[in-house]
Design a protein around this nucleic acid. Sequence first.
RNA 1: GCUCUUGUGGCGGAAUUGGUAGACGCGUUGGACUCAAAAUCCAAUGGUAGUGAUAUCGUGUGGGUUCGAGUCCCACCAAGAGCACCA
Length: 802
Amino acid sequence: MNFKEVEQKWQNYWHEKKTFEAINGSEKPPYYILVEFPYPSGAGLHVGHVRSYTAQDALARMKRMQGYNVLFPMGWDAFGAPAEQYAIKNHIHPKEAVKENIKTFKGQMESLGFSFDWSREFSTTDPEYYKWTQWQFLQFYKHGMAYKATVPVNWCPNCKSVLSNEDAAGGVCERCGSFVEQKEKSQWMLKMASYAEDLLDGLKDTNFAEKVKLGQINWIGKSKGVELDVDIVGGGSFSVFTTCIETIYGITFFVIAPDGKLIQELMPRVENKDEVMEYIEKTKRKSAMDRTDLNKEKSGCEIKGIKAIHPITKQEVPIFLGDFVLGDYGTGAVMAVPSHDERDFEYAKAHNLEMIQVIDGRSTEEKAFEKQDYLGVGCKLINSEEFTGLTVEEAKKAITKKLVDMGVAREVNNYKMRDWIFSRQRFWGEPIPMIYCDDCGWVPMNEEDLPLLLPDVTEYEPTEDGESPLSKITDWVNTTCPKCGKKARRETDTMPNWAGSSWYFLRFMDPHNTKEFASMDAMKYWGKVDWYNGGMEHTARHLLYARFWVQFLYNIGLVPNKEMIWTRVSHGMILGSNNEKMSKSKGNVVNPDDVVKEFGADTLRLYEMFIGDYEQDAPWNTDSLRGCKRFVDKVIRLKDKVKEGDSYSPKLESIIHKTIKKVENDTLHLGFNTAISSLMILTNAMEDESSITKEDYHVLLTLLNPYAPHITEELNESIGYSPICESSWPVYDDEKTIDQEVTIGVQVNGKLRGEITISKEEEKDSILEKAFNNEKVKNFIGEKEIVKTIVIPNKIVNIVIK
RNA sequence: GCUCUUGUGGCGGAAUUGGUAGACGCGUUGGACUCAAAAUCCAAUGGUAGUGAUAUCGUGUGGGUUCGAGUCCCACCAAGAGCACCA
């Protein structure tokens, strides 16, 4: 059989019959399966893409046969740095490169027979799409959720370019290797931090995998604690945030951040201004160095002339500057308790500061400070006046209450998650639709003027001072103020790559809508995304951004649900045959096109599903791939055994019902490898028969169809059945999946000693009798005393002897 | 350092969630078919001892709970991923 022709034939059939087009408002129950739309890189489709697409394709095909109106769309996340880099290098407009790449990707996807609804295809770079990304940005702005702020960015002085954190890893520019500096830049921000609690809370309304939820929780990074006011000798005060208020009697100094506002406010009263200023400058340079290595020792200096007053003991306490305290977290100042905090301990050691132990048990001084010991039961407070003797948990409550009553503290939550820096000084992104007018300030564009098209340029490099190349196109930049009509300038920054992917799943529900980003009716009809599949690398940030975006749209009444994604799963990577991540430099890359050419699409699909646990990484193995090819050939050969008959062979009936149940359940629960294994078992069972009925063969082909759609359609047609893609999924009879007779083990003292065969409804006594009559079991029991017998129906018998 | 994930044959991996460990596939060995090869088919295949029935050990390590542990609990070891001074 020529698989190339077969594949082509059925791909054409599906295309012509529009087999996979989802219909909005259909009476069938809706089911939305989403795979992350890819970035169409020049490298083409990766075998890793094939893994997740095949998995969700199998689910989609099965669900369709089960009578669902399945939405399984595909599109392109095509803005972003790689296309721009390519453009800079080759002087081709990214638009052109993207167009080419999409063509390649789409061709590859079609050759694999994925049942995407291509009528809903779009790219984030289509003006019809990014018009709505821009429109949604304006909604953020109009609801006070977007603002401009001056924030430090990674700046490469050599490349004269703003770098993302990824490109500046280790404090070194990825391209040229020079040290990255921090540069202040005015950027658009989205107020994501204010959604921290909602984003945590919303997880309740999702069915994300546990590790995905954890990723979200860790990224948000919530800490419960107390914000404490501290008076300064001679007037004034500042606040600190702590999660360990019970250690308040152990404070021996305070530390404030060199990059925060507080030190600037205190500056007029500082006696050693030179020293302090120098340290602040040093931090600015150093913070770019990523603060990772070299930085173990705690640097800083005392702020002379300013002393804090301990809120309870009223003693004078010195204040220090230290870069281990971050200016943009909490209050930018901490209370230092060196006996019970590792960082404070190191700082105290480096600067010869006093330590007071306030919790019995191990302190940092005795080395091996461990949170567990510290929080463990039996740890009691010492040196803490009336709180001495309380446990840590008790003291936390009591001291908080005292301070709150005194009016100098309040319970607060802090989050690691910051606001979203939303500007990029790049060309290949959605232009931010804002206009700056000298009189009116920042003014949003009129919504009816959208989309703001990305103009064509000849130079894609950022400018000398790190501005987007758009800033060089003066006739694009210069415009008039939508408010007062005077001369004004456009924003030249573009949106980050994350923007377009934060709402694409909504657009798929209603992709051709010219009046709205998606109609409420369409979104209500489809409801939440039932399955969202993507890589582990996107489970933290992309998912968080998308959820934030949706929650905002929900709050302003534009989407029907606060969470629009129900289940999120992540697939494991396909590694090279040497067990390392596939990469060109390692020469272990497998190109799916080659495999399709040599083995066929169905074999590749089967292999990638059979390769192992879907959520786990797995190495490529060509021998195993051949095994799957053998399986396909076996199924083809089975056709020679087919005889007339429109019911299951009696001998095969039970295993067929079992297999239907197994394939159905496993396909629904990511057990693709075991689903295929059970199909192999069924195939082997059929092979053992001298003949099988048409119906036997048909059911095998139907069950295998979601995984190997081309060959199964062809074989099914050859025995005179109508196409599987237009048929329904077989139904199993639970009664028939239960064996009448079952062989169970007999243990003596928990060790397997024999086997007995019992019938489905056999009584305990009869089972035990069989067990005791088993020769091997008899030998082991001998004359010994029987203490106890355990009979678990259909599972096992255990006889305990002494 | 912290968080998470994973440790089962020569390899990828199963195990109905506490009940016959190693399903299925790969590989290997022997055999059949063939002039030969490929393809296909049959048989064997966790270790050790034994001709053998069989015995014994065995799911990273050490303990524990249980009639019974790959699965639950405690401690540890190793690999991978992510976060990285978040008070």
